[in-house]
Simulated assay, not measured.
Amino acid sequence: MPQLRRVPLADQAAEVLLGRIRAGEWALGSKLPGETTLAPQLGVGRSTVREAIRQLAGRGVLDSRQGSGVFVTALDAPEDWEQVLRRADIVTVIEARIAVEAEAAALAAGRRTPADLRAMRRALDGRMSEGQSIEEHVNADMALHRAIVAASHNEVLLDLFDGFVPRVRRAMVEMLRIRPVASESEDHAAHVAVVDAIADRRAEVAARESRGHLDSLKAALS
């Protein structure tokens, strides 16, 4: 069995256990051996094993059940969301935005409130304010897209969108500095079309307009 040599030992122990799970030593739903078995295998004390198990439980890989033992609940640990986004190509991020925002627009068409509509209309006006810098325009654009997702009243979709914002914002600012939008009026009309479809409770149209706008953005960034 791999032995641990460097500190912090609990972090090392967690990675060794995760490696063994990834390698298929324990199947999904199976019970891990007890601390008295794992500790000598890893070359650490039982308290270190307990801390390693706690770490993996926090990452969703293990579940420690009182009186029953420790069970495998996932065969790998998801990467940190920010690290994934930092590494992802911006086009890949836009593709993920399409999945999130087209669905959010459809949901918003059925769930939007008068307050949601007011927020979207205000954000629309904010996109076209006179004398905006590129950064201010991008911030206003992100505010509109967020208002649309918020109108879906789906917290998971909103959390996903908020995760995209820093990566997308930087890319949009850089792109607009090099290559401004060919027609600001057409770009704004595309946003108006999404909001109007949501206001009219036309879910399919809202999703189609949202997807079409983001597909155009993807093409511009490719």
Rank of each mutant, 00 (worst) to 15 (best):
D80E: 15
L38F: 11
A193E: 04
H213W: 09
M175R: 11
R211Y: 12
D89N: 08
T73M: 10
R169N: 02
W26I: 08
D11K: 05
A219T: 15
A220P: 10
D11P: 04
L176R: 01
L62Q: 07
A104M: 11
A115T: 12
R111D: 08
A74C: 02
E186A: 13
R50F: 14
H145G: 11
A193T: 05
A143R: 00
A99C: 13
R167L: 13
G58S: 03
A13H: 01
R97S: 02
R6Q: 10
D11Y: 10
G34C: 08
R118N: 03
D141I: 15
D141L: 11
A115L: 14
E155V: 14
K218S: 08
V91L: 04
A182T: 13
E209Y: 04
M175P: 12
I134G: 03
L62A: 10
D89Y: 06
A39Y: 07
G58V: 08
A123S: 09
L176N: 02
E95Y: 06
E184L: 14
L38A: 10
A105H: 07
D125I: 15
L117I: 07
V181W: 05
I134Y: 06
L28G: 07
A27M: 03
A105T: 05
R167T: 15
D196E: 12
A207L: 00
V100S: 03
A27C: 06
S30D: 11
E130H: 14
D187C: 13
V84L: 15
I148P: 04
V100L: 12
R86A: 06
V49T: 11
D116E: 03
S68A: 14
